[in-house]
Simulated scan of single mutants.
Amino acid sequence: MRILLVGEYSRLHNSLKEGLTQLGHQAVIVGTGDGFKQYGTDFSIAPKFVNSNGLFRFFVKAFHKMGINLEEAEKGWRFYKLLPKLKGFDYVQLINSNAIETYPWLAKRLYKKLLQQNGPMSLLICGDDTPIVDYCLTGKLKYSILTPYQNNKSLKKSYAYTLKYTQNNYRSLFEWVKDKAANIITSDLDYEVPMKALGYTTTFIPNPINTDAIAFKPAVVHNKVIIFLGINRHSYTKKGLSYFEDALKIIADKYPDAVELIVTENIPYNEYVKLYDSAHILLDQVYAYDQGYNALEAMAKGKVVFTGAETEFTQHYALTQEVAINAVPNTDTLVTDLSFFIENPDAITALSQRARTFIEKEHNYLVVAKKYLGVWGAN
């Protein structure tokens, strides 16, 4: 099969491509690379022109204040120019209803042309999208990425990207894509639970992790326990990173000679994964039920990851032992959990091995790629 993968926010599509390629299929990724993260793509639609110099960036900001987003316009234009090369694929998968990251009205036109020259389309739900945001706003979940906003409406500006999916134009785009999609796939329980609760028919396929390319190194503490926190300012609030920062301040005072802290901010993906290589513990996010892509890759490397590992997750995978630490929005709880590992370094090594074993069993990229092929109807 020839598969076109549109969009990339977490390296999910890259790992899926690697699995498909190993199985003898051809996959092509088109996307922006997601800003500073710089994920790999075969065809880039990143807005290079409007960000090429200071003068253009000035106009971008000026037009943005008037409600005109030149970056979105350029992404759409670049995708349009690529359309002659994006044809003859047996299947198309969108990583989001607005995978092109352009104006919703323009996205519909581009998708329509894309579908005319290719096979069926899947919609992947693996991040913010209209039904996910809708369900989070109902307050039916114990907590969600929207909990900070629901508790403090002054944070609305920090949630501009997420809340845009509730606007009529993005809602209309989602409905259009949903109706045209042959199937809807969810990548983890943070999306499967809301979609099922809202009555959608979905296929749950865990994130693919290339365990052949990620070396496992047991987390053995020889001197200090090294804790890593990678901050993304764009998602700082909805990931609850302030709880980690507050916990680390307490930990640094409590164990001045026993811990080493590594804190980074807004760095490219390739640099990010190198910087946490030496860490024993990685702090990911608190408002989650399942693990996102960064957490899964860190677990594959053998890190103790503080992330989503709620009851829904342990029950789904029938786990009897922890493979990750369920990070909750409570500083005292985080401090207690971190203290346990600092005082019991052998527990770090044991959990490190369980994490890797879990990834190999449930997230192997070849097994996951076969599940996608099954949904797409490949022989």
Rank of each mutant, 00 (worst) to 15 (best):
A99I: 05
T202F: 04
T166L: 15
P47S: 11
L115V: 05
P194Q: 01
N266C: 05
Q321Y: 08
S187T: 10
M299A: 09
N266G: 03
P148Y: 11
L146F: 15
Q116A: 14
N223I: 02
L94E: 04
R109T: 01
K153S: 14
V375Y: 12
H25P: 04
N53M: 14
D284G: 04
P131L: 02
M299R: 02
L351Y: 02
K254C: 09
Y191R: 00
P84F: 07
G33P: 04
L16C: 12
K239P: 01
Y243I: 03
S187W: 02
T333L: 07
S122V: 05
K65A: 10
V263S: 08
L373E: 11
D190N: 14
E175Y: 07
Q22P: 03
K254A: 12
K75R: 14
L146N: 02
G139W: 00
L163K: 06
Y236R: 11
M195L: 15
V323T: 07
A46H: 11
K17P: 04
K75D: 00
T32M: 07
K249R: 14
A318C: 11
L261T: 06
K249A: 15
K85E: 15
D290P: 02
F36N: 10
G240P: 03
K371V: 04
Q22L: 13
A181F: 01
